[in-house]
Design a protein around this nucleic acid. Sequence first.
RNA 1: GCUGCUGUAGCUCAGUGGUAGAGCACUCCCUUGGUAAGGGAGAGGUCGACAGUUCAAUCCUGUCCAGCAGCACCA
Length: 648
Amino acid sequence: MAQISLTFPDGNSREYPAGITAGEVAADISKSLAKKAISATVNGAHFDLQWPITGDSAIAIHTLQDEVQANELVRHDLAHIMARAVQELWPDVKVTIGPVIKDGWYYDFDRQEPFTPEDLGAIEKKMKEIINLRDPVKTEVWDRDVAVKYYEERGEPYKVELIDSIPGDEPLRMYWHGDWQDLCRGPHLQHTGQVPADAFKLMNVAGAYWRGDSSRPMLQRIYGTAFTSKEKLKAHLTMLEEAAKRDHRKLGREMNLFHMQEEAPGQVFWHPNGWTIYTELQDYMRRKQRRGGYVEVNTPQVVNRKLWEASGHWGNYQENMFIVEVDEDHAREKTINALKPMNCPCHVQVFNQGLKSYRDLPLRMAEFGSCNRYEPSGALHGIMRVRGFTQDDAHIFCTEDQIEAETKIFIDFLADIYADLGFTGWTIKLSTRPEKRIGSEESWDRVEAALGNACKAAGYDYEIQEGEGAFYGPKLEFTLTDAIGREWQCGTLQVDPNLPERLDANYIGQDGDKHRPIMLHRAVLGSFERFIGILIENSEGKLPLWLAPRQVVVASIVSDADAYCLEVVEALKAKGIRAEADLRNEKINYKVREHSVGKVPYILACGMKEVEERTVSTRRLGEKQTKTQTMDEIVAELASVTTPPDKR
RNA sequence: GCUGCUGUAGCUCAGUGGUAGAGCACUCCCUUGGUAAGGGAGAGGUCGACAGUUCAAUCCUGUCCAGCAGCACCA
């Protein structure tokens, strides 16, 4: 038999007969490795230990210590083990697919009755039994016809459909965990006992459409989370609890920022505290935009359907619009309007007033545009996904030649704002031409290149999302990473030659002829509502000083200090600081606790000592240490730390 | 929109086929206390809405509304 040479990660290589499996190689190295080995990477691809190696290769044998591979295998085997457990408990349940996802896996089942939380407990118990069986994992390559026939006989239509969708040249692999069998690409562990039995947990059940298609049957999806050790599972569960503490819906209530109620689903009732954040952020954005060369406009909320027909929204977006019918007296027919879901058509109307010259371009037209969209009920989520919201929207009217420069200017503008708001980690994605599109290939070539070049010129890399652009033009998406690693797509820049065409926008060029401008739709925050939700979750409610709704509370320790507390509050207010007094008949411990829970960044306590010395006892949120400062000192300090970043 | 779950006091949640309870918050009283909950008393609810079953429904059934998780959606 031919010999092959296998090179190990340490650079050493050994000769083996061709067709040897990674498991046999592990056994050749040591008995303990043979036992601990879970899989192997051969020439960069991840295989299980049963896979024969046919040529010279670089090989690395993995154990549970190799986090990346171990997580994948453990989660993948757990998906199979769970499916087996479910079928052992309820033999009539049909299996579908069960992939590995971030932090775990899921498996979709077709079953008449819903799974209950008690069922999850039973499944988990059964899974542990299966793990303890230490059933060897076996694999075979099957002929398509055999596999189809097998699944047809077993009444597993979903598997048959899956086989049909696997390309004909791809071998069909079958895997066994004991007697239980599943169609699977692999790789898998040596035996079920290699799964750490105390490092997984079934999380929840939810509906999911077969193949992600809302016109197809809804299946029941069970989610699980798994790691390579009990400690890592525990750390993950703790992290989930931490994330729950940041929930903006919970903090919004606790900090008295806003509420929502049945009569206005998906719309926000902003309370004084929340509205303070909103207006501070908006004032900041307005200052930035003015300095960034934008003109600000404001356009109507309720607009006749004629405009939406002309813009194309009536045809493409109608089910997402609030339609308003007005039955005017003596009118022959009802007037039909729609609440604007976007600002762009209205901005073109402003652009179209008066004849524009090439000298007017680029024209950066901004609006804090209040929009209403009839979002599907299931999509609503706190203030993050709402039906009424305000965008930090702008449209840049320009020539095609100006796209690159305008894009670069925008990226710099956005980077500056994200930095001011405390987000340093963010990425750019460039979405390119989709299959269904308008416009010439040459124009797509030029515009996509312009966006890419602008990113590079601004000093940023970007990831390409092939085919994800709008039908009329490519776009950039700006995604920021929050304090606990979650990603939020906020900023966007979209190239649009279509709407100016539909709404007949034009300008007089240097040549004296009429020309069509291009529109760049762009936003930095996205919507104020969603962005404030992100700010709350990112900061766990401890907002930057300049955005904190209540910046200082001056709390009296004894009632004889009340008058002095009011004097301190007045001195702070005179500097524009949001200060209030807490003169309630409560102990200082109580007041400190309450305002700490309420995320007030500064608590100034005053007793008779402070009254006599004209000082305050300063305590910053989260610090146990207090410090005594004179009134002048604290007023100056707060005036400085509450200054918005663009005014520093 | 789809599947499942949930809806009881301002908040967090118990509970029962015979019209309801706790803790915190709130109001009042006592207490003037030095940096994360001092003590006492009181007030507060058409039990999400509408139908049905029943002598009787907050509880059982149905429809609707809203929320939660996931899916789908986010021209």
